[in-house]
Structures are given as C-alpha cells and as structure tokens.
Amino acid sequence: MGPTCLSCMERYYESDGGTCKVCYEEANETKDELKREIEELKAKVAFLRFWSPFDHHSRPNGPCFTDVVLVATSDDHSAEIAAPVPAHKALLVSRSPVFKAMLENEMEESLSGTIKIADVSYDALRSFVNYLYTAEVSCVDEQVACELLVLAEKYQVKHLKAYCEKLLVSKLNWDNSVMSYSFAHQYNSKLISDAALSFITDNMDKLTKKEEYVELVEKDPRLVVEIYEAYLSKQVNTAAR
C-alpha cells in the first residue's frame, strides 16, 4: 500500500511533494490559472488608473487639465497661503459621494472651482488627493494618518479609512490609548476604539494618573463611564471562567 495523498486522501504510488500525480497536476493548473487572472487584473487596474496630477514621471511636461483645486485652511485662515492641490472634478465625483453632491449642484465650490478643506495640513491634503487617484498611501506618520482618517470619514472614502485604522491600531500603546479612544469615538472607528479600550482596561490602576484622563473627564464624561463599564464587564467575565 502506498502513502495517502494530502489533497484527495486516496492511496497513491506516483507522487510529488506528498500528493498524488493527479492532484499535483490539478494544483499546477490552478496555480497557472490564478497567475493569469492576477496579471489580467493588474492590466485592468493599470488601464483604469486615473493619472494623478502629482505623477510627474509619466507626464513631466504635459498639461494636467485639472479643473478644481483644494486648499487647506484653518479657523484663522493662516493656512490659506499653502499651495493649492490640483484635481479633476470628474475624479472627485467618482470617488466620494460628498464631493459628488458638492460639485453636481451649484454650490460655491462648484462655481468657484476651489474647495476649502478645514483644519488639515497641506501634506495630509496632498496625500488624500493622491490616494483618490492611485489608491496608494505613501509612508505617513501618525499625525498625518489621523488627518487622513478624518478626511476619509468626512468625504466617505471607506477604503482609505480602513487603511488608516489598521495603521493607527498598529501604533497603539498605553501612552496614546486614552487619546486614541477619544479620537476613535469622534470619528466612528470601532476598530481603534476596541483596541484602545483593551489597553486602557489592562492598565486601570494607572488610568487616573494620566493627564489625558483628566481632560476626558472634563470634556466627555460619557466615555469615562463607558471605560469603567467595559472594565467591570471584563472583571466579571474573568471571574466567571
């Protein structure tokens, strides 16, 4: 009797890598087929990709044909001196339902060709617009990632928000947990909220000593109540085991 094939669980005599000859050949055919499908998808993505105004390598001297600019602003308008970020209305409309509503109607932004984005840095705004074109985010620090998440939430760009959530969760620690918990509630991020809450409830003996905790008590006591409710629930579950 021969060994058992790891794929079909049948006995075999001719084999390769722990599988019978039939299963091995079928696996190779499937692998080749998946490779072809991946290459086809890459070709479609390349064809559908809307070239970015920042893509100077592909269009070093050619016109961008942009028809709208986005400008980073602040409450005191001091940031309006930052360089405008060029874009195409058609692209913004196709990527964000908020931009779609804004630009399809005779709102100020549609008529003037200028969209003012409040309380965001130029770097974050540029990264945000570039993502709308390429679905790619260059290396960003935590501050820019937070700004991008805010923009993604405001303009309903779900894929970007998910990316930022994962990045920020990977940067979570005890020191930034309270601030991250508050931030997550403000911008509807359950992923960050749950991860931050886990850090907090694991360190409750140190919580009241944190400056961020004192600020949270003053600004949003509701979240403090939720923290203690989560901690008590965790204690009950632990005791019941």
Rank of each mutant, 00 (worst) to 15 (best):
Y228F: 14
G18D: 08
A124W: 10
K89M: 05
I115W: 03
Y181T: 03
K158D: 12
V69H: 01
V120K: 03
L91T: 11
L91S: 02
E29T: 14
F199A: 00
Q186N: 10
I117K: 01
I200R: 02
V68T: 09
T208P: 01
V225F: 05
A184D: 00
R95L: 03
H159Y: 10
E40W: 02
K154N: 11
H56L: 13
P84K: 08
A184K: 02
T4D: 01
V178D: 01
V68C: 03
D220H: 07
V225H: 07
H57K: 14
Y181E: 00
S112K: 12
A72H: 03
E226V: 12
L91P: 00
D55W: 04
S127L: 08
D220L: 03
V98L: 03
L41W: 07
K161F: 13
V224K: 10
R126T: 13
E106V: 01
Y131L: 06
A46S: 15
V214Q: 13
S52T: 07
D55L: 01
C20Q: 02
L167V: 10
I192R: 03
R36N: 09
A46D: 14
N203C: 06
E26V: 14
Q235A: 08
D123E: 14
A118K: 15
Y13N: 12
P84T: 10
S7N: 15
L41P: 00
G17R: 14
K158T: 14
S127G: 08
I117L: 04
N130L: 02
P84G: 08
R95D: 03
L6D: 14
A118R: 15
D123Y: 08
R126N: 11
D16I: 13
Y163M: 15
N237M: 07
T134A: 10
R95M: 06
A239T: 07
Q186T: 13
T208F: 08
Y12P: 04
E37D: 12
A83K: 15
Y181S: 04
L167C: 07
N176T: 09
C8M: 08
L125H: 04
E109Q: 13
K154F: 09
A46C: 11
E229T: 11
Q156S: 15
D141L: 10
L191Y: 01
Y228H: 11
A46R: 15
L125F: 02
F183I: 11
P86I: 05
S189V: 07
K190T: 02
S170V: 00
